[in-house]
Each structure stands twice: as C-alpha cells, then as structure tokens.
Amino acid sequence: MRVLLFLLVINYASIHGQNTLQLVEEKQPTEASIALVSWLEGHWKGTAFGGVTEEIWSPIDGKSMMFIFRHLINGKVNFYEIGHIKEVDSFLVFELRHFDAKLHAWEEKNEVQQFKFIKHEGNRVYFDGFTFEKVSPNEINIYGLIGNKDGSESEVIFNYKKQ
C-alpha cells in the first residue's frame, strides 16, 4: 500500500510540477499584444547546462522583441540562439534558431523553431513548450521543454538576473 501511495504522489508531482504547457492543436491561439512581454527587455545572465547563459532582449519595435542567447562553458562559446517574440495579426509567436560557436546553423536553411502563444496568467506568459516568468524587475525564469535522445522531453529552467 505504501508503495502504491508513493507512486501516486510521484506521478501527481511530475504531472503538476511542470511550469510549461503544450498547445492542443484544435485550440485557437489566444490574442495578445507584444506589450505583454515588454518586461523581458534588458541584459540577463544565469547558469544552465554546466555553464553560463546570457540573453539580451531588445526594446519593442515593429511589433517584435528580438533576442540573442549565448551559452559558455569554461569561458568558451558552446552555442548561440537568435530569435524574437513577435505580434502577428493580434497573436504572439516565439521563434528561434540555434547556431554553433562558428555560427553554423543547427536547423535547416529555412527552418525556424516556432512556439505559439497559449495564455498569460499572473506573472507568467505561456507559449507552446516555453514559459516566461517575471520573478521581480531584476529576475526572470524561462522554462523550456527540451527533447532528449530517447524521444522524451524534460523541462529545464533558466534563471536570470538583470545585468
């Protein structure tokens, strides 16, 4: 009986302990303005994947906010991301591309990773597989679903402090 109870508690925690959501295909995206994520603007640093992470988000212009991401291990660039959150026809989308340290793209030439907006709730903005959380004016969390080699997904957290 104790084993069954333990497994139920673990299963409940794994289902409800997640900070990310996934969009149900049949559901229409929620309308939202780019102003909803204006608090991302700035220079942010943290740690993840055994190294230093850094993101720089631009001010809103042209109904978009662009960003650049850099991951360093032992003082050397591991990889980059470039992307944006943009407003298109009253809907938001988060898009990005990955590059190695020599700026060779991971994705195919015309391929872009795209994550549609799901909802805004309190201090969190949810995209399909990513959540942006304003902890304070000087701290944010970004939660993301990352694919594993076995085909499963794991949620990772990027905690950033404003520089």
Results as ranks from 00 to 15, higher is better:
23 L>Q: 14
79 F>D: 02
83 G>C: 13
132 F>H: 00
57 W>N: 07
157 I>M: 06
131 T>H: 05
3 V>D: 15
113 Q>N: 14
47 T>C: 07
134 K>C: 01
89 D>V: 10
91 F>Y: 13
30 T>N: 12
58 S>R: 01
51 G>I: 02
44 W>G: 05
86 K>C: 09
31 E>L: 07
96 L>N: 11
66 M>W: 07
156 V>Y: 14
63 K>G: 06
86 K>H: 10
49 F>A: 08
32 A>C: 05
139 E>C: 06
156 V>D: 06
130 F>M: 00
38 S>V: 04
56 I>Y: 14
56 I>S: 12
72 L>P: 00
163 Q>V: 07
29 P>I: 10
161 K>E: 14
111 E>Y: 11
66 M>P: 08
79 F>A: 02
78 N>R: 06
41 E>H: 07
147 G>V: 01
135 V>M: 08
12 Y>K: 01
55 E>W: 02
138 N>M: 00
23 L>V: 11
15 I>F: 07
28 Q>G: 05
84 H>T: 04
43 H>V: 11
113 Q>T: 14
26 E>L: 13
2 R>W: 15
98 H>I: 09
84 H>R: 10
120 H>L: 03
82 I>W: 12
141 N>Y: 11
138 N>R: 03
85 I>H: 01
47 T>I: 09
43 H>E: 09
57 W>P: 03
29 P>L: 11
41 E>I: 04
11 N>Q: 10
63 K>W: 02
49 F>V: 12
68 I>G: 09
116 K>Q: 13
106 W>C: 13
145 L>K: 12
52 V>M: 10
78 N>F: 06
81 E>H: 01
5 L>I: 13
85 I>M: 05
79 F>G: 02
131 T>P: 07
82 I>Q: 10
53 T>I: 12
147 G>F: 04
33 S>L: 04
48 A>E: 05
115 F>H: 15
112 V>T: 13
16 H>I: 09
125 V>L: 00
53 T>K: 05
137 P>M: 04
147 G>I: 00
117 F>V: 09
160 Y>M: 03
95 E>D: 08
86 K>S: 13
145 L>N: 11
146 I>A: 00
1 M>L: 15
7 L>Y: 15
124 R>F: 03
21 L>D: 02
95 E>P: 07
